[in-house]
Design a protein around this nucleic acid. Structure first.
Length: 806
RNA sequence: GCCGGUGUGGCGGAAUUGGUAGACGCGCUGGAUUCAAAAUCCAGUUCCUUCACGGGAGUAUCGGUUCGACCCCGAUCACCGGUACCA
């Protein structure tokens, strides 16, 4: 009888469930290990083959760590608020809660069919009031510390999405919403903001504390975008009370600043515009407002702008500088205004050329007839800076600005505050009440959670408020003094619940706190966190921000949440394109599990290539993985479904070397997340084992343990057939004997002029002189050296000999 | 444009303190088994050349350092991810 994955996999999934095999142990004698997956959004489409890739990787580590004697925390949950459920509800009239609950059922079933070793007693769900009570609680703490505030900001208004909603800058792609592709317009609107910028420097500095891929760290650094420079105040000619503040990274070029540019949306534009210029300025502002971000950037090859009619005074030269507005200056960065130094900034140069503004070089080198010179050199035309190079000139100018009281050193960040409100129903209610007298208060902590009210009608409110505005019974409140108020109708973004979920797993049923401090201390930081690279910036930055805030409050014990992070690659369709319904190249994990088994899917996804690489799906490759597992089964089990006679307690050393090598390599490779090479080594072992007729039980058991993290169902079954009655889960991990790895003869390569000509078999401790002698005496070598003079012989013990001859 | 990454057989991919390029798997070829096929087991499989022994070339392209380079350096090309007039 051949191996029947359907029977065996069902059997062990039930066994593990029944015996609570994966319930987190909390043995104080053992070390703790926290293996975390990015929890999924339970979409209506079900699990994608991409999910099991990362999940299998953490599962392998979790299973290995248990066997290595760790307490392992390996939980799963649901990031269940989100746009698709609301969209679905709007389209069908169903409730997003029911829809979400059903999706979670499907997801949990699918995930369980894959045999992941999650501790389901710690399952969490961001839409559960017992969970989002603490999401709201964190928001309230931020509010109390001034880190959550309301502000009228220019936001990306998508009127066609869900009857009108705002999307974050980060969610706008090419002037359209990332999800749905609806057009986006920039309009001012009242929004809740979180002051992530207050943590910019720490978010940057503490990247040094974590073990993350350099590329992800670099992306976060770029996103935070620290730049050092100066803020400088310019006075306006004829308007003594008006100053324009700019940020510049090149204060040393102040003598070369010949004009100023404000963003078209800048507050001072109206007061600076002279009557003669009013028509031109207004027309330009109108034109810019119509443009999408895409048009303002990509397509803006030619610089555009309008003159306000006013002049600023250059504090260094005293000269008058015309003040312009132009869309190449962004309202959202720095102060929304710049001093333009066309000789030494390419953008300013292009603008000056377009509008025929003066270009004044203040650094030697370059040719301002051709292009802006942004390199270093001796300063000229710059009074007290003349002759200095860039760093010296910047330092001196900063001192001068500070002394004169017209500027100072300034660090600027590209990072902006986080727009935290959404005009949606399906999210955590923001626990705030706006009173008729203008006061804004939090819902008292003892009244949390503020429950999201049930409703059959989540139609758009028809304006910029969320659908909650329709629920007047909920919205309108009266306090004990009869004062009337309205609840905040905005809800939180999906990022909120996912910014701290990994804390709740540690103490998921705590009613007093989001989690017990001592328990957090036991488990944090997360030892291994695996997920898709698409979360490289946003999720990981937001989670770090919240974590640092909670650290400051004394709620969590570590400054960083995730010690080691790893990004899995994408699984592409068999045509090397991203899987999508329209391309017809989607693989459904359910089908694979049914036809090939979960073990095969797990093995294949780990064997496809490096975990962080994107690799195309291949049915042939999948089939190969199935063949390997069947080959393993057949090696140990005969046609009668009995253990083969060659599996024996008879001592035999023919497999000793390969076995010890395999234990070493597989253990190391798993730890390094190099599952593809680990599996290849396991295949090598099996190939060798097929060549011998005696399979000593200790090696068979060791092999089963090594393969167990990848293919747990089949290995449990084999383990049982070997006479064990308990699960492998807590069996000790195999060890290897270093002395078995040394060979008595090793192969030495002999090269002549770098080309391989012969191989020698020698004892490993053969010395250099002896190796040289042997190599030169080799007949094959001599045929290549006989007409030549030997110039040099390089001997690398245990590796090779290279003979240089001419 | 900028930042990060990748480029190796027919395919997925191995190989890094610079030391036998192509492990392992797929595919293909041949053999064993079978009435036959599937499955399985064994062997071969970078390319060119040779009956064979052997020889030559080869890790995107061009150049460099070195006794020796997939690996280090310079330039170029292609592709992927991120970001985009960030002052």
């Amino acid at each position: 009888m051949s191996y029947n994955h359907k029977v065996v996999e069902r059997k062990w999934n039930q066994y593990w469930l029944k015996h609570n095999t994966f319930k987190t142990t909390q043995d104080p004698q053992k070390k703790n290990f926290y293996a975390l997956d990015m929890f999924p959004y339970p979409s209506g489409k079900g699990l994608h083959v991409g999910h099991p890739e990362g999940y299998t990787a953490t599962d392998i580590i979790a299973r290995m760590k248990r066997m290595q004697g760790y307490n392992v925390l390996h939980p799963m949950g649901w990031d269940a608020f989100g746009l698709p459920a609301e969209q679905y509800a709007l389209n069908t009239g169903h409730s997003p809660a029911d829809f979400t609950r059903k999706n979670i059922e499907v997801f949990r079933k699918q995930i369980n069919s894959l045999g992941f070793s999650y501790d389901w007693s710690r399952e969490i769900n961001t839409t559960d009031p017992n969970y989002y009570k603490w999401t709201q609680w964190i928001f309230e703490q931020m509010y109390k510390k001034g880190l959550a505030y309301e502000s009228k900001v220019l936001v990306n208004w998508a009127p066609d999405l869900l009857g009108g909603t705002v999307v974050a800058n980060e969610e706008v792609v090419d002037g359209k919403t990332e999800r749905g592709g609806y057009p986006v317009y920039r309009v001012p609107m009242r929004q809740w903001m979180l002051k992530i910028t207050a943590y910019a420097q720490r978010l940057l500095d503490d990247l040094a504390l974590v073990d993350w891929p350099e590329s992800i760290k670099q992306m976060q650094r770029n996103w935070i975008g620290r730049s050092e420079g100066a803020s400088v105040n310019f006075t306006v000619a004829g308007q003594a009370a008006t100053t324009i503040k700019v940020f510049t990274t090149r204060p040393d070029t102040l003598f070369g600043a010949t004009y100023m540019v404000l963003a078209p949306e800048h507050q001072l534009v109206a007061s600076l515009t002279t009557p003669e210029q009013k028509a031109a300025v207004t027309a330009y502002q109108k034109e810019v407002a119509k443009k999408s971000d895409l048009e303002r950037t990509d397509l803006a090859k030619d610089k555009t702008g309008a003159f306000t009619g006013s002049y600023a005074l250059n504090p260094a030269t005293g000269e008058k500088m015309p003040i312009w507005i132009a869309d190449y200056v962004l309202a959202s960065y720095g102060t929304g205004a710049i001093m333009a130094v066309p000789a030494h900034d390419q953008r300013d140069y292009e603008f000056a050329r377009t509008f025929d503004l003066p270009i004044k070089p203040v650094i030697e080198g370059g040719d301002v007839d051709q292009e802006a010179f942004t390199g270093d050199g001796a300063h000229v035309n710059s009074d007290f800076l003349n002759g200095l190079d860039k760093p010296a000139a910047i330092a001196k100018m900063l001192t001068w600005l500070t002394d004169k009281g017209i500027g100072q050193k300034k660090v600027n960040y590209r990072l902006r505050d986080w727009i935290f409100s959404r005009q949606r129903y399906w999210g955590e209610p923001i626990p705030v009440i706006h009173w008729e007298d203008g006061e804004t208060t939090l819902v008292p902590e003892d009244q949390l959670p503020l429950i999201l009210p049930k409703t059959d009608d989540i139609k758009s409110s028809g304006n910029t408020e969320s659908p909650l505005a329709n629920l007047t019974d909920w919205v309108n409140v009266v306090d004990k003094n009869g004062r009337k108020g309205k609840r905040e109708t905005n809800t939180m973004p999906q990022w909120a619940g996912s910014s701290w979920y990994f804390l709740r797993y540690i103490d998921p049923h705590n009613k007093e706190k989001l989690a017990d401090y001592d328990k957090l201390k036991d488990w944090l930081p997360v030892d291994l966190y695996i997920g898709g690279a698409e979360h490289a910036v946003l999720h990981l930055l937001y989670a770090r921000f919240w974590h640092k805030f909670l650290y400051d409050l004394g709620v969590v014990p570590t400054p960083e949440p995730f010690q080691k992070l790893y990004n899995q690659g994408m699984i592409l369709g068999d045509n090397h394109e991203k899987m999508s319904k329209s391309k017809g190249n989607v693989i459904n994990p359910d089908d694979i599990v049914a036809e090939y088994g979960a073990d095969t899917l797990r093995l294949y996804e780990m064997f496809m290539g490096p975990l962080d690489a994107s690799t195309a799906w291949s049915d042939d490759g999948l089939n190969g993985s199935k063949k390997f597992l069947d080959r393993v089964w057949r090696l140990f089990i005969d046609d009668e479904d009995e253990l083969r006679d060659r599996v024996t307690t008879v001592k035999d050393e023919r497999l000793s070397k390969i076995y010890n090598q395999t234990v070493k390599k597989v253990t190391e490779n798993y730890s390094q997340l190099r599952f593809n090479t680990a599996i290849s080594q396991l295949m090598v072992f099996i190939n060798e084992a097929y060549k011998v007729d005696v399979l000593p039980v200790p090696y068979v058991e060791g092999f089963i343990k090594l393969l167990y993290p990848v293919a747990p169902h089949m290995m449990e079954e084999l383990w049982q057939k070997l006479g064990h009655s308990e699960t492998i889960t807590y069996e000790p991990w195999p060890t290897y004997d270093e002395s078995q790895l040394v060979a008595d003869k090793i192969e030495i390569v002999v090269q002549v002029n770098g080309k391989l000509r012969a191989k020698l078999k020698v004892a490993p401790d053969t010395d250099k002189a002896q190796l040289k002698k042997l190599a030169l005496a080799d007949s094959k070598v001599q045929t290549f050296t006989q007409d030549k003079t030997i110039r040099k012989v390089i001997v690398v013990p245990k590796k090779l000999i290279n003979i240089v001859a001419k």
